[in-house]
Write a protein that binds this DNA or RNA. Sequence first.
DNA 1: CTGAAAGCGCTAACAC
DNA 2: GTGTTAGCGCTTTCAG
Lengths: 328, 328
Amino acid sequence: MKDVARLAGVSPMTVSRVVSGEPGVAPATAAKVGQAVRALGYQRNDNARHLRRKSPGTATIGLLVDDLANPFYARMARSVEDEAHRRGCLVLIGSTHDEPRREREVVAAFTARQVDGLILVPTAAGHGFLRGPAHAGTPVVCVDRPAPGLAVDTVTVDNRAGARRAVTHLLAHGHTRVAYLGDRVGIWTQGQRCAGYLDALTARGIPEDPALIRHGLRTGDQARAALAGLRALPDPPTALFTSNDLITLGVLDDLDHPAPLAVVGFDDLPLAERLTPPLTVISQDPLALGGAAAGLLFSRIAGDTSAPRSVVLETRLVERGSGELRRA
Amino acid sequence: MKDVARLAGVSPMTVSRVVSGEPGVAPATAAKVGQAVRALGYQRNDNARHLRRKSPGTATIGLLVDDLANPFYARMARSVEDEAHRRGCLVLIGSTHDEPRREREVVAAFTARQVDGLILVPTAAGHGFLRGPAHAGTPVVCVDRPAPGLAVDTVTVDNRAGARRAVTHLLAHGHTRVAYLGDRVGIWTQGQRCAGYLDALTARGIPEDPALIRHGLRTGDQARAALAGLRALPDPPTALFTSNDLITLGVLDDLDHPAPLAVVGFDDLPLAERLTPPLTVISQDPLALGGAAAGLLFSRIAGDTSAPRSVVLETRLVERGSGELRRA
DNA sequence: CTGAAAGCGCTAACAC
DNA sequence: GTGTTAGCGCTTTCAG
């Protein structure tokens, strides 16, 4: 900046004013400065700028998701970045890979960079560290899952209602033996979906049968094995509710034999309508999740200090065939 | 920091040393400082730190892709972030949505934040702005497509060889009328894939038939319409090479009627093996792309000033059925 | 309308 | 081992 000032024959202060588009500079002076800027290829150092400026922070937010490669979070990230871009804000990104340690590290690195706010898909573990004085003043929005014991804005989808809807749909097609296949119940979304499954049974007066409930399925293969187990029961299910896409895919190949099973999955899949059978799913809208989270965060950044809000988005039942199979 | 110093009864300099883990501080002093840090919830301001430190820049890189929501770029981003994290580096992210203006804006914002380097999926348009003095000293790596006229490191996949392989595969199954369905040839990857298609024909001595070549298909519906046109020819094709996944999906439903067509697509799809027919594809490895780009960038950042390098990754032919249909 | 001085939070370089 | 001084690149504040 000093170089530009020298070349333009003005003081650094004037260069600052021109570069920042502040009023009160003679057009002629501004032009000279502009030329010097272009001649030298000068670019303002925004880090230094934000160091001195008190006004709007650093115009940077942090986004920390479980895994960027997951299309669900990728779409969320996209809409967060779009919202940030509309507001002239940059986005620092990170993946936790569900490791609380990595989460803590990255959050620390983000706040050390003076981000104006944080959008976070919390890992399962405790988030006491976010409550410390280090984070006072940095607004946080949790998205996709809440952070237990952390009083911050949260955007989730109504997993429980969605699961209930799925299972109710199956019951409406005459099924009475509906199995639940899920990942670990400790995962918040899974717990919610299982609760929704039970809600639906209860509403119909169908007693819960522990033999039909399988938790902790972490891979497609495990799901497949679980299904085999279910089919070996004396009174096997005629329908399945699969609680995430990995599990849905795992059972897909074994739906027809020996007896056809109806299935509704939670989470939409890219090509669900082209599978055989076309998959009926409960679908979520990751773009809306990201958009809502960004909206909340920016209103906090703008100074909104009201009580923490909880936004819950609805899911959608998409009927494509696999869930409309009537009981044999 | 001054507050911490006061509370610990030492000078700010000592706090700095402790917080930065520098040697040469008495353990007792370090302990006192540590307590004060925790009591106040102090966190170092890394922006200010990097302002003064000359050593390793800001430990931040910029990643600019076409669209974060695209699973291909999402996976690339994930591996870039992983590599960056391994090196204690943060990642600023952005989407261009293929708009050169947005690309320029975001690149400018990144460099204004003093990123140590840039990984870029260049838009189609010119990149003269990257050559200006403003970017001297900020290493850039282009990934997925080259930036015409820009002498920087580039990581791409061998689109041409992949396409050639796909078409050769179809020819080997007895087909002589193989059609090409692609997006605008002006898009670099599409141009390469079309060239590969022609290579394969030439190698077999099969003359190119313009009636079998369709460019500019931007949607699945357009691809479908193009296929209808091909089928109406007096001498219709018996096999297709589809040059991206959108096009592949577009034609998928019309492969069997009136006559069965063999097809090989460029780009793998998540559930390709579960479609009917299971899809034979040329698959790329976005994680490897991202990893290679990050590797190159970090070696540049570390001071490698050798001539710009071009890394070209191979594709893989994945045979699943749709491409192994013999000529009727 | 423009410039000089001071300082944002931190660390390099040197003194003690 | 620890403190002092100066200054990173910019903007605030106030004086001309």
